[in-house]
Design a protein around this nucleic acid. Structure first.
Lengths: 142, 142
DNA sequence: TGATTTGTAATTGATACGATTACATATTCC
DNA sequence: GGAATATGTAATCGTATCAATTACAAATCA
């Protein structure tokens, strides 16, 4: 199977899964979710664990088991979904410590940390403004 | 040599390099830049090519050659630096096309594109507000 | 009890990316 | 012109990341 990913697609998968759950009144199994996302059920199950830990869904085992939303789509933001399943920083740090002989090398990490925090705040504020209900609305509109 | 990178550190390297150039009145060689960043000169040279293509620096060959800023630090934003050296999207797409039998599978790509654009706009607006001169100011303050 | 489902560990294959070596090309200075 | 000093660039290596997959234990329900 060909892989074209240049980075994690967990957020894309998670939004997809959550949108399906929002349209569903009963439990959806990882097998059925995997089918619409077009991936392996285990990939979905690992995603469901993170979404569950974030309090966004509930899962149950056995026949008629699966996943359901833990609260209304209106009160779930894309930021909650993103931070539940995606852990990476906005941009990478120096892999090796910069030279301490250079004034820039000494202070750059702190400045980059400040930039990272600002970028992250801005990014999260934007995703907080989009709810799962908005996503579902846009899906139905198309 | 140990690698701890979890994603591209090109932006961190680029901001570091640009800050050094902003403090320099003469050309800085890739060898000297590599020393303060603590990486290989070739890594720096590849970065310098991208920064040059974006019109942020000029390079020259031969003795006394190297890189200099192409314009004042005040008029260079971190967004210009970021988009010069970092090409990846904010988050990854589905690696395999979602099922077209499911209404969510049909429309999810378009919705995720919309989310991506909003997130990206917000992110870029924030980085546009920070100039290379701001970075240098924060470095001197420490 | 047996079918169904989640939870989870281990492995595989592809890709990304910094680090490194090697060398061609351009520029300056004597 | 020739030597020294730079950048430009191709090729390769090693490690990390990550989705995909197989296998199986644990839980749940009829």
């Amino acid at each position: 199977m060909l892989h074209t990913h240049m980075q994690s697609c967990r957020f894309a998968f998670a939004v997809h899964v959550m949108a399906v759950l929002a349209n569903e009144d009963r439990c959806a199994s990882s097998a059925s979710l995997a089918e619409t996302v077009n991936t392996n059920p285990v990939v979905i199950r690992r995603l469901l664990i993170d979404l569950q830990n974030a309090g966004l869904i509930r899962t149950s085992r056995g026949p008629q088991g699966g996943a359901v939303l833990a609260k209304p789509a209106k009160s779930i933001s894309l930021w909650q979904i993103h931070s539940a399943v995606e852990s990476r920083e906005m941009f990478g740090q120096h892999p090796n410590p910069p030279s301490q002989d250079c004034p820039v090398g000494q202070g750059i990490a702190k400045v980059l940390g400040y930039v990272e925090r600002r970028a992250n705040r801005s990014f999260s504020r934007e995703l907080q403004m989009i709810s799962l209900a908005d996503v579902v609305r846009r899906l139905h509109r198309a």
